[in-house]
Design a protein around this nucleic acid. Sequence first.
DNA 1: CTCATGAAGATTGTTGACAGTCCACAGCAC
DNA 2: GTGCTGTGGACTGTCAACAATCTTCATGAG
Lengths: 236, 236
Amino acid sequence: MSATRPLAAPLENRTLRQQVADHLREEILSARLAPGSELGEVALARSLGISRGPLREALGQLAAEGLVTIVPRRGAVVKRLTRQEFIDAYEVREALESLAIKLAVPRLGAADKAELHHMCEQMERAGQNNDPDRFFELNRQFHARLVRASGNSKLEEVHSQLVAQMGRLMKQSLQLRGGIEQSVAEHRAILDAVDADDPERAARLLEEHIEVPQRVLRSLAAQEIFEQEEVPGNDD
Amino acid sequence: MSATRPLAAPLENRTLRQQVADHLREEILSARLAPGSELGEVALARSLGISRGPLREALGQLAAEGLVTIVPRRGAVVKRLTRQEFIDAYEVREALESLAIKLAVPRLGAADKAELHHMCEQMERAGQNNDPDRFFELNRQFHARLVRASGNSKLEEVHSQLVAQMGRLMKQSLQLRGGIEQSVAEHRAILDAVDADDPERAARLLEEHIEVPQRVLRSLAAQEIFEQEEVPGNDD
DNA sequence: CTCATGAAGATTGTTGACAGTCCACAGCAC
DNA sequence: GTGCTGTGGACTGTCAACAATCTTCATGAG
């Protein structure tokens, strides 16, 4: 019980496919690999110093996770969401988190609530410091924390996968809502309902909170987010 | 527009990995491959008449879909759900279908409603004929139809994947509820709300409908469903 | 008799090479 | 000049062999 990684990785048993999949997932989520980027197998394998076999398996896995699109005999590209797909994903995410908070509220202890409040304060501070990247990361952790607190592993799995797919776009959608102060206020309102052990009110507030970017996306000509980038592919 | 397969498969472009993945998925869903079955690569590849390469990619894809479990350097087995995982999946499914029916009701035309009623009648007939397999299949189609009618592709995708994971167990859980007549009555009640264009009532009824096996699973010592089968692996 | 040790067999992980397909571009007919 | 055709290159799909690891079983010490 004194291992450096007590959870889920007892030994360095990680196979190459897993390492490559994790690496590429991280590259995609961090936007170092832009949507639309073509993932040539030989070039990628060379740059990673491995063979094409494990790389192909990793790409297949990422395709099943919805992060890349594989066209038979044409290769793999980082998946690019249409506006409709993004709205659809938002709706599903709303339903998932609504369920999550209803399940989570009766299970939360004082320590959990305190931690959520702490995260909320950090988010406010990030807003004051004008650090949107940090705010985004904290926001992601806040929602992930709520979902995990539901105690429903499948829910957590589906949610994290969905958030990963929406990925980079969520960061930009953050700019579409009323600004960081508005978002922090909404989080506080949700936490109030959580403190009061009122799952229904918490769920309603959470749904409204998540709905904000959805409404903006529907109404506004927020096309720019999607229409943009034709992606140079490889710029040397 | 006169091709034999107008949708999604213009040519026989399907790659071996896809064919194998589809084949194995069908085998698992139809319970010809029981949960816990060990999927040895060499034996499987031989029986399919292919190499291990595409097979490994297909297995990786199915693992990402949650149908098989791959333990590094130990091989792949058909995933076996614990009771908790099954309950968790049921909760998520309930949230998804609740969202689906709320979205679907305002979009359904008279023809759609008629089709749903027709499916419901067929379910009743299957019950009278004491044909649980057919009833199960119709029930699956009924719910899938509702989800598709939501117009949310991501929702449909996540839902179908979840249903596939629950797969074979759902058939057995059908026996746990009040019997086929009870289930048909519940479907009729849902359709009444749909006919009345009342999304909230439809969603509430649907949630109660889905909750039935959940409650049974929680309370009852319905362990038998999960504790069973140690699975012979390969019987030649 | 029990448990540790080690070798043999079987299975998975990885690699490099071969085969087939798609795309781009040059050449030619009109 | 425009459009079709064929050839070349690059890429993906597939395969068979090699390497590494795990499991099993026999062997021997205590």
